[in-house]
Nucleic acid binder design. Structure first.
Lengths: 235, 235
DNA sequence: CGAAGGCTTGATAGACCTCAAACACAGTGG
DNA sequence: CCACTGTGTTTGAGGTCTATCAAGCCTTCG
């Protein structure tokens, strides 16, 4: 819960009373092992999930079986908050590796919003930032080449992990495979691999196994045309 | 205002008291002539706009001057509702042709939300549908070819105009140029033209000047892999 | 230690881009 | 009424980014 608060406060401060209300939310912990769906397209969830540990992603499967990843999520995110007001899911949400999530009943969140309108506003704002990220991805898909798209995505993930304190020295644990990245940026896995190779050659990143460190943040940002404004962080 | 209510009711019914409150919102009308920006990236609006007449689109300009259109808007839409909680705009909003918009002060909307929580929920929901549309566009950009993307876009526009009663017999007035479409689907204008030509040859659409009619809705839907579920309409 | 999944690399092919020029059409002014 | 202009549409030809197919390699894990 600490994580969620930290993230909400990245945009606007909360009072102690509000923080207490958040701490007092009933939350049902669950360990999700491996790659597994949390919610599926067509479901009608009665709770929202808070990602505590590990990575998650939202995705759709299109006619033909191709997969499109819509967003990646880091600890502290509430990826299906939208189910509060959009009863039937229009996409899937799944983990990328073993991780821990907490489930909070819709009912409790609704009461929280009623009693603490400022938290309601913060949550609404959170879903709006979600939308902003989609817009930025759209720009990438439409107007940036494969190299820039991958660079941009890496910048985004590192930045968002920094917000919750999980990217010391621009170094992160990233359980995202190149295939998953290819599903996200709309490029074949083979081509993603070539792009990553090029980035290594250019000494922008070091990436071995699940450990990614950005060696040249300035150049990576430039390569990805990355401007964090769309994340609407307070700082 | 009739339009906005009709659109909000497409997802959940409103009481008379709530409708009255909406009707009583102060609204400042303005005629926008030709292609012109309503709000720009970086602005800090103090009011939201309600599109009354004509078409609008949201877009970003990327490094290099290329434009990416993020969404199209039909009468009844409130394209910058997000400025309520995201103070600085991360994209531009402009008209596509002469049209009429109404401006409503943030302050009035905030009071409305406070006094009528169900309207607040409906508006929140509205911004969530916005996000859902972005997700669907992402799927298109990543996993559908040019032909399907254009077909999908036309299906979406027609469907959304039907909601506000502006598409009798699948025939609409569409002041969107092929260039604008190309900026939206991430394909060159030349290629959009070839795709449109092919659709005409296949007798899916008739499109002359500003008048577009879908002659074969079933086939167009199929070509675009269009499933309106993502629009979260009540019906 | 074997198997499975992920990564890497090469070769060929295709969708789409860019450049360039002609054409259609609406609005303007003489 | 008609030339003029500007925007939008249409068509052709060559080029490029990226996909697809195919194979070998490397890690991780049971």
């Amino acid at each position: 819960m600490e994580l969620l608060i930290r993230r909400l406060e990245a945009s606007c401060a909360l009072t102690d009373r509000e923080k207490t209300a958040l701490y007092n939310l009933p939350i049902h912990l669950r360990e999700i092992t491996g790659i597994q769906d949390i919610v599926r397209e067509g479901d009608r969830p009665s709770q929202c999930c808070l990602l505590l540990n590990g990575f998650a992603c939202r995705y759709k499967i299109v006619r033909g079986g191709l997969r499109q990843v819509l967003s990646f999520h880091v600890p502290g995110d509430t990826p299906d908050l939208l189910s509060l007001y959009l009863p039937v899911m229009d996409h899937n949400l799944g983990t990328l590796a073993t991780g821990q999530v907490g489930f909070i009943p819709h009912q409790s969140i609704r009461r929280l919003i009623r009693e603490h309108p400022r938290i309601g506003a913060a949550l609404w704002r959170d879903t709006l930032i979600d939308g902003s990220v989609f817009r930025e991805w759209l720009v990438g898909m439409g107007r940036r080449d494969a190299y820039a798209r991958v660079a941009h995505l890496l910048c985004e993930i590192v930045t968002r992990m920094e917000v919750v304190g999980l990217a010391p020295e621009k170094c992160i644990r990233i359980p995202i495979t190149q295939v998953a990245i290819s599903d996200a940026v709309g490029v074949s896995a083979v081509h993603v691999n070539r792009v990553v190779k090029e980035m290594r050659n250019q000494r922008l990143i070091r990436w071995r196994g699940k450990s990614l460190t950005v060696s040249d943040w300035a150049k990576l940002k430039q390569a990805g045309d990355f401007d964090p404004a769309y994340l609407h962080l307070a700082s």
